[in-house]
Design a protein around this nucleic acid. Structure first.
Length: 462
RNA sequence: UGCGGGGUCAUCUCAACCGGUAGGAUGCCUGAUUGUUAAUCAGGUCGUGCGGGUUCGAGUCCCGCCCCCGCAGCCA
């Protein structure tokens, strides 16, 4: 590391020395840990978020990524030259601020910095994002800058906490991370549209739409596994629940049954929600999220068979004015899912859908051969399905039949069939969509705000 | 892909009545202000998506295109 420059001569931020008055010994600290340094003098490195000026006193809102703090600059304390110089610094310029930390009830956040020195690192050009009144279209064009604003910042911190909770939960329960490939030779399920690309002399390759089949191989090797990564769907969906690139975590358990993964799913979701409530209170407050509904998210969740769900939907439809015709079978539409989820405070688990609407690898229910041993978890408050999963077909002959029925190229699935040829066992798993989970927890209308750089049908910039 | 709703300054869930000088707010610039909380106050700056058509005259009416938003299907 080089020496000399004020930015590079940092001491470890954890060992502030308040008694030092010479600048080269000033410690750097982050705003998040400011309250630990009450009464001490230190230097913050960040950006000018906003300024309110009153002629002889300036209030600088300084952000450094960990938080926002107000620095107070008084004319008679810092002198005319510095005061005027700081007054000319544009919004979002990078700056360092040296000053003493003090508690002050008048300051947003409770603490403020009595500034003794402000250094400009790089002046910003006129910043496109004002502190209020912008449309989502404009903000998405500026997504790379919008990340600095309060709401996206809070949402993405919740996302990071969700991801950490996902890993902590699964790692803590003996699941082994076995990442699935993103470049795949063929469709996993054959239904959804895939993004294709040329793969050298091997012909077409595709971006993965699910790591599940690979997780089944992983489960036969490690017992309990999961993968966590991006997933790609080339569907032309333009709704607030869809992205063309989204993140999914997919646990898979050897010797696991539908009941096992249903229990796992409700504990998993509860763990994630409680973890966010515990560690990201400030962020949920910034997002104005009512946390009361989230506090109730604890096992057990309400469970509903597909047949019972159909009865409820038909009752609801008949009660409408004018009545809507009864449900015709098949998969539920988005309004149906909303009807079901609005009946409960917790996520609702709908199990045993007709085998005809589910993927080829789903296992039939021995008690009802037209039903699959599968489960969808519908989040409350209208976010829709956050989990889809179930028990996999473990019988070689039945699976071969399903592949034929779905008119899938058998050669592509030989490796997958091998898992049934060499010591097949019952196994089950599910996929949890990260952005929908974050949208639900944050109370965000659209999933596009729950990923740093959303990819949608009509947006691939920035 | 289908259906619906929209494109007015750099920005805005904004205004412009029957076709007649495009108005406001925010930002930005200048000035004032010693405790601001999206600070406030005064002044200034900036605009009708593209291509045709009707008309004395088009933001407004007609035709085509482009773009955006929402919903649906599909899914997480």
């Amino acid at each position: 590391m080089r020496r000399g420059g004020p930015l590079l001569s940092s001491l470890p931020s954890r060992s502030p020395r308040a008694s030092c008055s010479r600048r080269e010994f000033m410690p750097f600290a982050t705003i998040a840990e400011l309250s630990k340094y009450d009464g001490q003098t230190l230097t913050l490195r960040g950006w000018l978020y906003n300024r309110r000026s009153s002629g002889k006193i300036q209030f600088l809102q300084v952000r450094d990524g960990s938080g926002i703090v107000q620095a107070v600059l008084v004319l008679k304390e810092v002198g005319e030259e510095m005061f005027r110089r700081v007054e000319a610094i544009p919004q979002e310029s990078s700056i360092t601020v040296t000053g003493s930390v003090r508690a002050d009830a008048r300051s947003p956040g409770g603490y403020e910095l009595g500034a003794s020195d402000v250094q400009l690192v790089a002046a910003a050009q006129p910043y496109p994002i004002a502190l209020q009144a912008h449309g989502v279209g404009f903000l998405m064009e500026q997504r790379h800058l919008w990340l600095r604003s309060r709401k996206p910042h809070a949402t993405l911190r919740v996302r990071a906490e969700v991801v950490r909770a996902v890993r902590d939960f699964l790692d803590g329960r003996g699941f082994v991370l076995v990442d699935a490939p993103i470049l795949t030779p063929a469709a996993c399920e054959g239904t959804t549209t895939l993004f294709g690309l040329d793969y050298f002399d091997e012909g077409k390759a595709f971006l993965s739409q699910s790591g599940q089949l690979y997780m089944e191989a992983g489960a036969m090797a490690f017992g309990k596994v999961y993968c966590f990564g991006p997933t790609f769907r080339a569907e032309k969906s333009k709704t607030r629940r869809h992205l063309t690139e989204f993140w999914m975590v997919e646990p898979e358990i050897a010797y696991g049954t539908l009941d096992d993964v249903m229990s796992l799913a409700e504990e998993f979701i509860s763990f994630i929600v409680q973890r966010v409530l515990e560690r990201r209170k400030e962020e949920l407050k910034i997002l104005e999220r009512d946390t009361k509904p989230l506090e109730k998210i604890q096992p057990p969740f309400p469970k509903l068979s597909y047949d019972d769900a159909v009865k409820i939907l038909n009752e609801t439809r008949a009660a409408q004015n004018p009545p809507i015709p009864p449900f015709g079978g098949g998969d539920f539409g988005a309004p149906d899912e909303t009807t079901l989820s609005l009946r409960h405070e917790k996520p609702v688990m709908v199990h045993r859908y007709p085998i005809s609407v589910k993927a080829f690898y789903m296992k039939r229910d021995p008690a009802a051969p037209d039903k699959a041993l599968c489960v969808d978890v519908l989040a409350p408050e209208g976010v829709g399905e956050i989990i889809g999963g179930g028990q996999r077909e473990d019988d070689l002959a039945l699976l071969e039949g399903r592949i034929a029925e779905h008119q899938l190229p058998k050669e592509a699935f030989e490796w997958y069939l091998d898992l049934r040829r060499y010591g097949s066992v019952p196994h089950a798993g599910f996929g949890l969509g990260i952005e929908r989970t974050v949208a639900w927890i944050c109370g965000t209308e659209h999933v596009r705000e729950c990923i740093p750089f959303p990819r949608m049908m009509y947006r691939i910039y920035p």
